[in-house]
Design a protein around this nucleic acid. Structure first.
Lengths: 188, 188
DNA sequence: ATTGCCGTGTCTAATTTCTTGACACGGCAT
DNA sequence: ATGCCGTGTCAAGAAATTAGACACGGCAAT
């Protein structure tokens, strides 16, 4: 059941992504680094964008499956995403600066949405509010998160996003609970 | 040209060796851990002993190629082998305690011989002594090293071999140079 | 002691994966 | 304008992996 070759392609691609911008990476380079035939690459992937796509989706899933489970507040969820972005900042920047932003955006929105969704999912207080309201709130936090990260990336990651995020979390302490209360009242 | 599967088999085997004694590890366990078909194991290896054999040989080569190059005295060579044994002590003990000592002994002798040989190879003073003398000296240090390690292993690695080794190196400081001098005189 | 279970080692046939070598296309530097 | 280089595609063949079966030996339970 294993095709270790496919995994190896991904691994060397990721390692290259930590060394140079996405648009400088060629299929030729990947397969040479990997020690495989060029056609083996095309056997598994259509091209570099789809390779990237697959990796991003996997990473997103993996992230949601692990890190986002343990958060006990929305703000922890926000921060764990930021943390993740920071750890992988080199590769992320190399993707971001290479104009292939479409797949990256999809990935970023997905991961942010899921991280927040998975937090709301285990909240008791969300059980009795309308689904539309919940979606709206998820979108609210998701856009915030995506916006912060894009801003940070666009500015070359100059400032410490985590500190800024923590500050914002302090400022808006309790606002989510208030919003949930309001939802409950409207529906009643 | 890649068979990543073979590499994966080795990797999971090594990881198992860090968890349990060699004789408790089964082919079945390896392939399940590895997520491959049992026949794929037999495609690459005859059995567990030959898998072990191959890994040990590779490790020995890798060791000689890297660590033993940089040593500037015999004693550094001796100690670098000890160091290596210490880092991998868990796996080594799991092999040693499983009675399959024959391949292990071959490996240990090989690695010790090469480590010392590679040191002598870059010594200027060994250029003008007879090859037989050189072989004898290599064997002298090799047996010492192998003996120390086997003693240490046999005793359950209770004491700190590195410290003992360093002490011995201090005690015999200069003895190798003296021996080389004697060789030169006899031949002259 | 016998039975049944489990892991081993071997085999064959089918399938998947990987390689080889070729080709047309577009970009880009000379 | 020409030549070079990387891309993407294709077909054929080789290599690696799987599936399924079989006989054998060990060993625990009965």
């Amino acid at each position: 059941m294993p095709t270790f070759t496919k995994a190896a392609i991904k691994a060397t691609f990721i390692s290259l992504l930590n060394k140079k911008p996405l648009n400088k990476i060629t299929v030729k380079e990947i397969v040479e680094e990997c020690g495989i035939n060029r056609n083996s690459f095309y056997y598994h992937f259509d091209d570099i964008p789809s390779l990237l796509e697959e990796i991003l989706v996997e990473e997103a899933d993996r992230f949601v499956a692990t890190e986002s489970k343990s958060n006990t507040s929305v703000y922890e969820s926000l921060i764990s995403v930021i943390d993740y972005a920071f750890t992988n900042r080199v590769a992320i920047q190399h993707i971001y600066n290479s104009a292939n932003r479409t797949t990256f955006d999809v990935y970023l929105n997905r991961i942010c949405t899921h991280a927040i969704k998975s937090y709301f999912d285990k909240l008791e207080t969300t059980k009795n509010i309308a689904e539309d309201d919940l979606d709206a709130m998820i979108m609210y936090y998701k856009c915030q998160l995506v916006g912060f990260i894009i801003d940070w990336l666009g500015g070359g990651m100059k400032y410490d996003l985590k500190i800024k995020m923590k500050r914002i979390c302090e400022l808006y302490e309790g606002s989510m609970e208030a919003a949930l209360d309001r939802c409950a009242k409207i529906n009643a």
